[in-house]
Amino acid sequence: MQKQKIIFISLFVLVIAYFGGSYLYKNWYTQNLDFMAKENTSVFIRPHSPIYGDANAKNYIIDFFDPACETCKAFHPFVESIMKKHPGKFKLVLRYAPFHTDSYYVVQMLEAAKFQGKYDETLNVLFKYQNRWASHHSPNISLIWAFLPEAGLDVEKLRDDMKKPEIDAIIKQDITDGKTLGVTKTPQFFVNGKPLIKFGYKELQELIESEL
């Protein structure tokens, strides 16, 4: 029947346009990032960004995260385990994407801990007690203070350091770079500038190991 033909042809055309469009868009997006990774490395790594792993490693895993995000917490040890499997190959660069309300303050705490040389400890404590201070995606800043001494922090000094304008500048820079790179969800990973497009443990491992 003529009418059914019209419908199915248009449906077919539209669906093809949708999936073809997604394919082309993702290709363009990846190429664009690849270009930025080559021409404009600083969007991915800033001098202030915390870096883990072997200093001689040539491959970069860039992780945009939010301290209040549960998936970020879950992926942190996973990424570390992959890096351990390939010693000397990868560096992990941490970037901030404080999307949750009030996550901004938590990032301020983290950055302020740098002044006391306790960044790792603070990050670990934040993740360890995350379910206590950030249940159901709303960080409760007042609860965090009680956990911080476990990281060996001088809490009073931390309160003062948090207000420093350079910390503000660091976080704003990370938010801007996140926007440039199209980060809308956390965690968002880039390996040598290549984005993790389909999210998942297996997909991330494949992306990382494809760069070896």
């Binding site: 949708y18 469009g21 997604s22 868009y25 993702k26 199209g182 809308t184 969800k185």
Partner: peptide
Amino acid sequence: LFFSEVMM
């Protein structure tokens, strides 16, 4: 759907 699922 393209705006939200593909372009995120």
